[in-house]
Design a protein around this nucleic acid. Structure first.
Length: 595
RNA sequence: GGGGUAGUAGUUCAGAUUGGUCAGAACGCCGGCCUGUCACGCCGGAGGCCGCGGGUUCGAGUCCCGUCUACCCCGCCA
């Protein structure tokens, strides 16, 4: 006996049928979206990833399947064979297929469904936890189906563009060795080598540089990377990069290729022209104007420095901070006088407190009258200077933070973004790219130098001679691509000279032995004719998140992890047998209650 | 590691700063009726250890302590 599928091939998808198909006999397969049983007459909406088609089960038409039709419930997987008929006066204008319906003469139930733990609809009324436990059902929802398709298309557009531009696709090892710099590694024990471990790559950084040394000229890979750090809405322990590297290039060459890639992706996905070349801004400028190196340029409200104007102020918080080498900077909320109550401003004060600000000073400007707790301490000439510098007008609310730049920048930068969101200043139809350049090479953490990007980043050519001076003054040939306030990519020109690489390790307080221990194979390779090279890596998840308008990368990852790095569906991580541990020469030192 | 929000039927929530009719609603589910629905409608029914563990009390969704889980943020993420 033959099966249904042997006898019947699907002829159409559920979102395809139109008036023009009336009269055809079609075979549809999919899931029961909803059923409406009107007694002798039953309607079923059949769904697949392309849409829904209404089925009409009319006992006059195919008596023998009617009983089965009445049993159909949500999420059953079925097939029907039937004629497409016009809905006549009963068309549904809200549905693309609403002009027609299918009159089944055959009905095949492939499999029944339990009552799903949440309704499969665009905006389900349930917790993310519940959805993640049943991700296979969550993924049936239209928004997630679309996100996955957008992700797939982005993959395709990326491959096509890079292959067309002479890039060679590689696969670098997933089992590699730990490089103790940077993020915490995910480790994999070795059965063959007791007490030794592989590490999953935080990025294929060293391998792609080696491929340049091997002469492949242009490398790319769409690749999983792993970092064992705490999660956020835009951070997962495993994430995907569009990784690229090019030989014999300047930053301009890399930037040009990337702009072409972005243009190709945005054209392909949204049919919009993102109009390269993109805006550029130095790191210093971004920090001064927006307080962060990933500024959202879709709205203004820039940060203004009023340190000079208040250096001698009677208000000790301001003058004292300036005297101690700090800064006083502020934001102007246009028309903010009526938009914020004292209690609401206090909430904002708590908000900046998170970033280490001791307080949020504020004044409300009404004509020439300033009100607010600090108003009385601000002298007439200071008011004039502040007003001029901030462009303040009557009705504006001015807010200030006084501290070191390490506090003021993040506090005001995040406050600016919060206000932009709260006051609805952001046009979410807009895609605003910006390159951030001229990053400092090092930052000081607890008195020690650390690389801002990674230790293979080449110094800026103009700063080469500063390698012997103050290393904190050295800028690099690094560049980040920022889109709508998200860092979506970052890269640099790499060091291709062994002597400069040694110098950098030296500045980082790393001995030659240590460097050898950690990056020996790269250092060796650098001694065999290394081409000048550089590259970049894009965060694919973040990019697709922005492309789809999602507000978390979990929405664009098929099987994401929770903020505690767990997969609620697969129940990973999980326990393993003692035998497995023994084989791997491992013993656990904590004995948690079994769960 | 720290801060915040949430956790009561399958799902979303109510149950007021007063501890005692407090086991409730809606949707979903099950059964019945219904031939033009598309949030179908009408009638009936089943469903809960109030996240978990302690404590206070004659008595605890309710008060206290701890703990777990999800989400957001700080730290962390070369």
């Amino acid at each position: 006996m033959s099966t249904f599928l042997q006898d019947h091939a699907r002829t159409h998808m559920c979102g395809e049928l139109r008036e023009a198909d009336v009269g055809e006999t079609v075979t549809l397969m999919g899931w029961v979206d909803t059923h409406r049983d009107l007694g002798r007459l039953t309607f079923v909406d059949l769904r697949d990833r392309t849409g829904v088609t209404q089925l009409r089960f009319d006992p006059h038409h195919a008596e023998e399947i009617h009983d089965t039709a009445d049993e159909l419930r949500s999420e059953w997987c079925i097939a029907v064979v039937g004629e497409v008929v016009s809905r006549g006066a009963n068309k549904n204008p809200d549905l693309p297929t609403g002009d027609v319906e299918v009159l089944p003469e055959k009905l095949q139930v492939f499999s029944r469904s339990k009552t799903p733990p949440f309704v499969i609809e665009d905006d389900p009324d349930t917790t993310e936890e519940n959805r993640l436990r049943h991700r296979y059902l969550d993924l049936r929802r239209q928004p997630l189906q679309e996100a996955m398709l957008t992700r797939s298309e982005t993959n395709g557009l990326t491959r096509n563009y890079l292959l067309d531009n002479g890039f060679v696709e590689f696969e670098t090892p997933v089992l590699t060795r730990s490089t103790p710099e940077g993020a915490r590694d995910y480790l994999v024990p070795s059965r063959i080598h007791p007490a030794k471990f592989y590490a999953l790559p935080q990025s294929p950084q060293l391998f792609k540089q080696l491929l340049m040394i091997s002469g492949f000229d242009r490398y790319f890979q769409i690749v999983k990377c792993f970092r064992d750090e705490d999660l956020r809405a835009d951070r997962q322990p495993e994430f995907t990069q569009i990784d690229m590297e090019m030989s014999f290039v300047t930053p301009e060459d890399v930037i040009e290729v990337c702009e072409g890639l972005m243009a190709s992706i945005f054209e392909g996905i949204h049919d919009i022209d993102v109009q390269p070349p993109f805006e550029r801004m130095s790191y210093d400028e971004a920090m001064a104007r927006f307080g962060m190196d990933n500024p959202d340029l879709r709205f203004g409200m820039e940060i203004v420095d009023i340190s000079e104007a208040v250096a001698d102020s009677e208000f000790r918080v301001f003058s004292g901070t300036v005297a101690d080498g700090g800064v006083v900077r502020g934001l102007r909320v246009e028309g903010g006088v009526d938009k914020f109550s004292r209690a609401e401003i206090e909430e904002l004060e708590d908000f900046v407190g998170v970033y280490g600000a001791k307080g949020l000073a504020w004044v409300k400007v009404k004509d020439d009258d300033w009100s607010g707790p600090i108003a009385n301490f601000i002298a007439e000439d200071e008011r004039a200077a502040i007003k001029e510098q901030m462009g303040a007008e009557s009705g504006d609310l001015l807010m200030f933070v006084a501290a070191g730049t390490d506090v003021v920048c993040p506090a005001l930068g995040h406050l600016r973004e919060k206000l932009g969101d709260q006051l609805d200043l952001i046009d979410d139809e807009q895609f605003r790219f910006c390159w951030i350049t001229d990053f400092p090479m090092f930052e000081e953490v607890d008195g020690e130098l650390q690389p801002m990007h990674h230790p293979f980043t080449a110094p800026h050519p103009d700063d080469m001679d500063r390698l012997d001076g103050d290393p904190l003054d050295i800028r690099t040939q690094a560049y980040d691509l920022v889109l709508n306030g998200h860092e979506i990519g970052g890269g640099s020109i790499r060091i291709h000279r062994r002597d400069i690489q040694s110098k950098v390790f030296d500045l980082l307080g790393m001995s030659e032995e240590e460097a050898r221990e950690k990056f020996g194979f790269l250092l060796d390779a650098l001694e065999y004719g290394t081409p000048p090279h550089g590259g970049i890596a894009f965060g694919m998840d973040r990019l697709v998140m922005i492309l789809t308008g999602a507000d978390s990368i979990r929405q664009v990852i098929a099987f994401p992890k929770t903020t505690r790095a767990a997969d609620l569906m697969a129940e990973a991580p999980g326990r393993v047998d003692d035998d497995q541990l023994e084989e791997l020469h491992l013993r656990t030192v904590v004995d948690e209650d079994s769960d």
